[in-house]
Simulated assay, not measured.
Amino acid sequence: MGHLLQVLEKEQEMKTAELKGFPDFGPGDVLEVKLEVPENRRREAVFKGLCISKRRRGWRTVFTLRNHIANAGPIERTFPLYSPIIQSLKLIEHRKVRRAKLYYLRNANPREYKA
């Protein structure tokens, strides 16, 4: 039964990846995500930030973006990659990093990770 679920999830992942056409990205990249907010009459919202982690779990892949906004302070949001609310994903800048998870930026100065 487990193998059947893996095959079905892989097919769904491939179909959605072809449909949406997301760029290949990883931790350290600056991304811009356009979201469709269902609570706000399906209006689009844009969130721009530095990718601090990406959990590759096939169909359940998630990534975390972090940005610092002047009055609100640091903001972190985690998005499922294959979620229907994500309209588009744009790679703005590629930054070279030496770690897979950049959680140490939580204690860093905002100017080091500001997107």
Results as ranks from 00 to 15, higher is better:
L4V: 00
L8A: 14
Q12N: 10
E13R: 07
M14E: 14
K15D: 06
T16Q: 13
T16S: 09
T16A: 11
A17C: 05
E18G: 01
E18N: 11
L19G: 02
F22T: 03
P23L: 07
G26Y: 02
P27S: 15
P27W: 06
G28V: 15
G28C: 07
L31Q: 12
L35P: 05
E39P: 00
R41H: 03
R41L: 02
R42P: 00
R42D: 01
E44I: 05
F47Y: 09
L50D: 08
C51E: 04
K54Q: 08
R55M: 04
R55I: 03
R56T: 10
G58S: 08
G58F: 07
W59A: 11
W59T: 06
R60L: 11
T61C: 00
T61K: 00
F63V: 14
F63Q: 07
T64I: 06
R66S: 10
R66L: 10
I69D: 02
G73M: 10
G73V: 15
I75G: 00
F79L: 08
P80R: 07
Y82M: 04
S83M: 04
Q87M: 06
K90D: 03
K90Q: 05
E93A: 06
R95T: 12
K96G: 02
V97K: 10
R98T: 07
R99D: 09
R99F: 02
L102V: 13
L102G: 11
Y104N: 15
R106T: 10
N107L: 13
N109W: 02
P110E: 05
R111I: 14
Y113N: 11
Y113Q: 13
K114R: 14
A115R: 06
A115H: 03
